[in-house]
Computed example of a mutant assay.
Amino acid sequence: MTKTETRPFDAAEFLDTDEAVAAYLQDALESGSAEVFQTALQTAARARGMTEVAKASGLGRESLYKALRPDAHPRFDTVQRVLAALGVKLTAEPAPVARSA
């Protein structure tokens, strides 16, 4: 019997286009969870290369790693800079309103 080898799933392997990164981060935003979004942002940065994202965002590589740690609380300015380095922007739209019967 042949043994099947598996490896852990890493979404970063599939974030190979600007559109894929934007869709991934949009899904994370729609979750409504800051933790989910921060994890997605870190994954997207890894997909692009942390050194490249750090350079493009004007952050030091170590600062970028610290800002995107699971227990970190990055400033909005930092998030914006990372998003810009990833080629993504945040947008706002009206939330759907629940209609009563």
Rank of each mutant, 00 (worst) to 15 (best):
R99D: 08
F76W: 11
V79G: 04
T78S: 11
R99T: 11
T39G: 13
A67Q: 07
S31E: 15
D71Q: 09
P8A: 15
V82D: 00
A67W: 06
D18E: 14
G32Q: 06
T39P: 03
V88I: 13
V21N: 01
R46G: 04
F9T: 09
H73S: 08
A20T: 04
D10H: 12
A28C: 13
Q26S: 14
A12N: 13
R46F: 08
E13H: 01
L59K: 04
L41K: 05
E93C: 03
A11H: 12
L59F: 07
D16I: 10
E52W: 03
D71V: 02
S33N: 07
E13K: 06
E93F: 01
V79P: 07
T17A: 02
A34P: 07
L86P: 13
E62N: 14
V36K: 14
Y24F: 15
A20E: 12
S100M: 12
G32T: 09
A92W: 06
R61Y: 14
Q26W: 07
Q80S: 00
V36W: 13
S100D: 15
L64W: 04
A54Q: 00
S33G: 05
S31W: 09
E19Q: 14
P8W: 13
R75S: 12
A54F: 00
L83G: 02
E30M: 07
A67E: 08
M50N: 12
Y65G: 04
L90H: 08
A92S: 02
G60S: 13
T91H: 15
A72W: 03
T2W: 06
E93P: 02
K3V: 14
K66M: 04
F14S: 07
L41S: 10
A92N: 01
A84L: 05
L41R: 02
A22E: 14
Q26D: 15
E62A: 11
P94L: 11
Q38F: 01
T6W: 15
D27C: 05
A67L: 02
F14G: 02
A85L: 00
E62C: 06
V21L: 07
Q38W: 01
A54P: 00
P74K: 01
K89Y: 13
P8F: 14
T43A: 08
E5T: 14
R7S: 15
